[in-house]
């Protein structure tokens, strides 16, 4: 929504205070290499190579249809749902090829949680929403479930608002609460990675701010990959930013670098709001 405005750099931050280098000693958690993805005859991703580092927020930006959502859905194999979707190349999660034969997709999705663009709580109680994941993965004892639900609510900054309303229908919550409930639901299965596909695009500014705060708090323990249309959001919360255009990864660097001194002129044009 603010894409047409010039983005002001926060003054306090200088390039000297950048986080560790992208390609330094640190070991990446997700390693995407030579990824080509086709929907039937149409190629949606072209030779994407990208390392995603643990306990950071990595933002994927770019105009609609640039492939950023497609990429994020490849990381938990939600693209499997799309008929005629073909993938070449590899995505390694902690060294393990997630597209390898014999990969347990359900286990993968437990390790890589996802929050969708539109809040999608199940039409059941708040408690049952959060308990769905743990129950799926075999937690049966009530005390254990209660503890997991409470922790997930606490982690998603919902506990104070909802602790007396666990039996309420999730559909009665506000949009922002629903989205945080979806985050809580994803956290309840104790994932390693949290994928967020434009999680605030359907929310008002206040709810958006709360989700952003939450993301910043969660990166202490989780690796977050967020797709966003809102460049200021990427600037506010992400450590790394990847800019996509027409299915190609144009530039991937520290967020401040991308927004202040991008190397590619196309990135420059986009972050300055000249197109998109």
């Amino acid at each position: 929504m603010n894409t047409k405005k010039e983005i002001e750099m926060p003054e306090a931050l200088t390039l000297l205070e950048l986080p560790q280098t992208l390609t330094g000693e640190e070991r990446s958690l997700i390693s995407i290499s030579k990824l080509n993805l086709f929907y039937d005859q149409v190629q949606a991703l072209h030779n994407v190579n990208m390392e995603i580092y643990p306990r950071r927020i990595t933002a994927l930006i770019g105009p609609s249809g640039c492939g950023k959502s497609t990429l994020i859905k490849s990381i938990n194999r939600m693209n499997d749902l799309v008929a005629d979707c073909r993938i070449q190349g590899s995505i390694l999660l902690d060294g393990e090829d997630i597209y390898a034969r014999g990969m347990d997709v359900n286990l993968l999705r437990k390790r890589v949680g996802m929050v969708f663009q539109k809040p999608n709580p199940f039409p059941m109680s708040v408690y049952d929403n959060i308990a769905f994941g743990p129950r799926t993965h075999g937690v049966k004892k009530k005390a254990e479930l209660d503890a997991l639900v409470e922790r997930a609510l606490y982690d998603a900054a919902l506990l104070d608002e909802l602790k007396d309303g666990l039996r309420r229908s999730a559909l009665a919550l506000s949009g922002g609460q629903q989205q945080r409930l979806c985050i809580a639901r994803a956290l309840a299965v104790e994932p390693e990675v949290l994928l967020m596909d434009e999680p605030t695009s359907a929310l008002d500014p206040i709810s958006t701010a709360r989700i952003e705060e939450l993301a910043l708090a969660l990166k202490e323990r989780y690796t977050i990959v967020i797709v966003t249309h809102n460049m200021q959001q990427a600037l506010r919360i992400s450590d790394q930013t990847a800019f996509f255009l027409l299915g190609e990864l144009v530039e991937y660097n520290h967020t401040l670098q991308i927004f202040s001194e991008p190397e590619d002129p196309r990135t420059d044009d986009y972050v300055k709001g000249r197109f998109g």
Partner: peptide
Amino acid sequence: VPQQYYEGALALGARHER
């Protein structure tokens, strides 16, 4: 039933039947 419910459950690691 909205497809998002199905996708939401699937993304939590639930099998199709579940």
